[in-house]
Nucleic acid binder design. Sequence first.
DNA 1: ACCTGAACACCGTTCAAGT
DNA 2: ACCTGAACACCGTTCAAGT
Lengths: 218, 218
Amino acid sequence: MTGNESGRRHTRDDVAETALRILDDYGLPDLTMRRLAAALDVQPSALYWHFPNKQTLLAELADRIVARGAAPSSAAAGLGWPDRLRAEAAALRDALLAYRDGAEVVASTYALGLGDAAAQRRLAEAAAAGGFDAETSDRAATALLHFVLGHVSHEQQRMQFDSIGVLATGQAADPLDRSDSAAAFAFGADLLVGGLERLAPGRTPAGGTGGEVSRSRT
Amino acid sequence: MTGNESGRRHTRDDVAETALRILDDYGLPDLTMRRLAAALDVQPSALYWHFPNKQTLLAELADRIVARGAAPSSAAAGLGWPDRLRAEAAALRDALLAYRDGAEVVASTYALGLGDAAAQRRLAEAAAAGGFDAETSDRAATALLHFVLGHVSHEQQRMQFDSIGVLATGQAADPLDRSDSAAAFAFGADLLVGGLERLAPGRTPAGGTGGEVSRSRT
DNA sequence: ACCTGAACACCGTTCAAGT
DNA sequence: ACCTGAACACCGTTCAAGT
């Protein structure tokens, strides 16, 4: 796999990739410094040569999870800004879903102000294509980011709850339908993007439809 | 204060209120079962007679924090549904801000499916006043809830970061302006409510303004 | 440059037993 | 009904020392 199988010495990259594998295989509660050290065949204290503390390690994982998601589907070039913004949000969701507990790792890192703010920047950029000033674009991006992180955190928490508690209380009420979850996500993203469309600089102040397909050509 | 000052025996309510006080005074990371036990002059194991585990205790705190926020400002009766929905979101934010780390406690409880879902219900009810079907109201409420929890979590995390790291890196870049924070919150809530207004049953499919003051009389 | 060994100061939870 | 005492199985982090 990713680390060196027995050659003793490790790099910062080894440590991060092994941590990512533990995260994906066993979840965030099981990603302890001691478990990570054991997976690397090393004493726990050795990790502190590579990272000053656990939060910094988690921030590195968050950055990798977000960066790995990369670009929204294929060519977003031909789309208007609202579709591009929706695509960016969807791509972020996919990136978070690609790793177990990915949303929680990114959310906690983001909340602490650690990590590069790549996700926030990508969303703000897509919003700015609508001609909004920087503050508006930033606030719209922040609102979208909070929604995405909250939604996917919830989604992932239920995933593992479902796989663990299959037998509890007649399997509760909420079996988590994958497609339903995607629809609920799209609905929330549409609400935010739609709300932003109402504020678009190119629109007539009180006469636009706000409902049809975006016509912006910028 | 809330507990009995020295009369030994405690109730479940004593335990919850003392926990709430520790939360507010020292923050969530310092709310440990051992610290709580010490504050009650009791062994840690005694707490497990009142609550089966820590998560259940936190869910109780979350319910109390949300319930304590109660109703939006004064009379929301005269308002249209969009204003009422905005007021409900603002009231929820206030409730979360009333306790240190309140948003994180509620968010984690909500993510785990514990606690009564009072916040979600209140928002869904306010949305339903717009004439939407139950699924739409629920999804709008969920999107709003995710935004509110994410926003206030972020807000509170920076509050304690600011008060601790006053000296770090020339106080960073982000001094957290209270009024700015409120404006950013209002902007996000407006985006979501505005997006929902576009979908309101009473509107003409492609002719409404979507921008002016709500006229709904329902 | 990268790691060991040993320790410090903690956690949440269980369970038999007491009153 | 409510709590004690003692233990179990862990945590993250530090630091002198090794190679």
